[in-house]
């Protein structure tokens, strides 16, 4: 393959990565932005989404692949959202959202979810069939239509989120809580309920992203670590808590990670980006796109 088409293929792979990453990171970004909570178990919510998708597909069998997929697309975020709601209610709220305590607690939740899945789902990676087979033929190579669907779906969800945040009352309440918790409470916003729903919503984004990606990758009980780290990177680069920054950063990092991984070693790509991000956090704590406050 020539360099041009190869770059196109790498960019498409990068876009798929960026699509999934922006959804996962958006969830983490919402919980951090609104609640100031660093949710270390975010990657496990992602993993659970993938496992539920596998579970739905394997119960219905290959004959109903499409229906199984649609059910998973609906069910996975719901189940994961409920689980997140429960962990918010019974753990995070009792800790009063204190940063260090919540980090330790979410590490605990991470292990609990991961090991429970290991006990029930097993240690092996399990594939899920894509809901449809559709091949787009470029002059140089054929490309899976499902991957393009993933990109499209992510764009739809992201636009929807933007609309909700910027144009509706729900978004207004969330932004008010993010800006000044005490003032929002003084104006009658039920902070506790906002926190609970935001935490659940954050987890639901992760689950949704996982259902989208699971036909391309496979479901595995350790698959949460990578998206967690990448989401951290995206949220930090984007300016902690800034939704727009996170999405821009997700596209940037997803694309460059996809492209660098195709030309160089994936481990090297991860090393370089992790190191850069640590340095960004040290020397530009407001993130690359964030505005300096205080």
């Amino acid at each position: 393959m020539d360099f041009g088409p190869f770059l196109l293929l790498a960019s498409l792979e990068g876009l798929v990565q960026a699509a999934v990453l922006s959804l996962t990171a958006l969830g983490l970004c919402l919980t951090f932005g609104v609640m100031r909570v660093v949710n270390v178990s975010h990657g496990e919510f992602y993993m659970l989404g993938a496992v539920i998708a596998w579970w739905a597909a394997s119960i219905l069998g290959p004959k109903y692949a499409l229906s199984g997929y649609l059910i998973a697309l609906f069910l996975a975020p719901c189940i994961v959202g409920l689980l997140a709601l429960a962990s918010e209610r019974f753990v995070l709220r009792s800790l009063n959202y204190e940063p260090e305590a919540t980090i330790v607690a979410t590490i605990g939740i991470l292990y609990i979810i991961q090991q429970t899945v290991l006990m029930s789902f097993g240690p092996d990676a399990k594939p899920v069939n894509p809901p449809f087979y559709f091949r787009i033929d470029f002059p140089w190579f054929g490309y899976s239509g499902y991957k393009l669907f993933v990109i499209g779906a992510a764009i739809v969800v992201l636009s929807g989120t933007w609309y909700v945040l910027a144009r509706t009352r729900v978004g207004l309440i969330m932004r008010a809580t993010q800006l000044d918790r005490d003032m929002a409470q003084a104006f009658g916003i039920p902070i506790k309920r906002v926190y609970a729903y935001v935490f659940a919503a954050g987890a639901m984004y992760a689950a949704l992203a996982a259902v989208l990606i699971v036909p391309i990758r496979q479901a595995h009980y350790l698959m949460g670590a990578d998206p967690l780290l990448m989401s951290f990177i995206v949220v930090i680069i984007g300016g902690l808590g800034s939704v727009r920054g996170a999405i821009v950063a997700a596209v940037l990092i997803g694309m460059s990670d996809g492209i660098i991984s195709m030309f160089f070693s994936p481990t090297l790509a991860k090393m370089v980006s992790t190191l850069l991000v640590a340095l960004v956090l040290v020397f530009r704590p407001q993130g690359l796109f964030g505005v300096k406050t205080s």
């Binding site: 800790l95 305590a101 330790v104 607690a105 590490i107 605990g108 991470l110 292990y111 609990i112």
Partner: peptide, 21 residues
């Protein structure tokens, strides 16, 4: 009893930070 022995680590972490800091 189980290969998922890290489960106990998770439970203890949550328990400690909530009730026994």
């Amino acid at each position: 009893y189980t290969s998922a022995y890290l489960l106990i680590a998770g439970i203890i972490l949550v328990f400690l930070v909530m009730y026994f800091p």
